[in-house]
């Protein structure tokens, strides 16, 4: 799998595509809230297609990998360009995570259908690598603004 430079990874994050205080408390409503946020920022041509696609993806197996982090992802014709959305829930959500615990951090990764899966798999791989570092994960649980998020993602050896 292709690896990715930290700076390249960070370039996919934008302040407009971050939700530091998710309102939703249930799995489907979290997905809907995140997709709606992307739609408000003109990254999606049709919310319903994306929600349906993400719902189907979850039926394949939960993207809640445990340790309080989920990586909903997929490809759809309704995605205009590769998009990464970060969302955080202070209280946590039951996302059917593999370890049965609540999920507090969400990295939504969406790619257009006509592009290959290479880039989004590389992003997934990099992010999953990052959350293996306990100190980084702990900082992410607490993050409430974009500059801090970028700093955490940039910092090495946490």
């Amino acid at each position: 799998m292709k690896s990715m430079e930290a700076s390249k990874l960070i370039s996919f994050f934008e302040e407009d595509f971050c939700i530091f205080h998710l309102r939703s408390r249930k799995k489907m409503s979290v997905l809907t809230e995140m997709v709606h946020h992307l739609a408000l920022n003109n990254r999606i041509s049709d919310e319903q297609f994306i929600i349906e696609m993400l719902k189907n993806r979850e039926s394949l197996g939960s993207t809640g990998l445990g340790n309080g982090v989920a990586f909903p992802h997929g490809r759809s014709l309704a995605i205009k360009e590769l998009s990464v959305l970060f969302a955080r829930s202070a209280s946590g959500v039951d996302f059917d995570a593999l370890d049965g615990k609540t999920t507090k951090l969400f990295f939504l990764i969406l790619a257009p259908s006509d592009k290959g899966s290479d880039t989004y798999l590389a992003i997934l791989s990099e992010l999953i690598g990052l959350i293996q570092k306990p100190a980084k994960l702990k900082s992410l649980y607490e993050v409430t603004d974009f500059p801090s998020l970028v700093k955490i993602l940039e910092e090495k050896d946490q």
């Binding site: 394949l60 990998l65 490809r75 899966s117």
Partner: peptide, 23 residues
């Protein structure tokens, strides 16, 4: 959208990558 997802899961390389990531 569904067909692309199914194709990805059936693709040995992609599914192996996803499984190696913990999915």
């Amino acid at each position: 959208d569904l067909d692309i997802m199914i194709k990805e899961v059936k693709d040995k390389v992609t599914s192996r990558e996803l499984q190696s990531l913990g999915f």
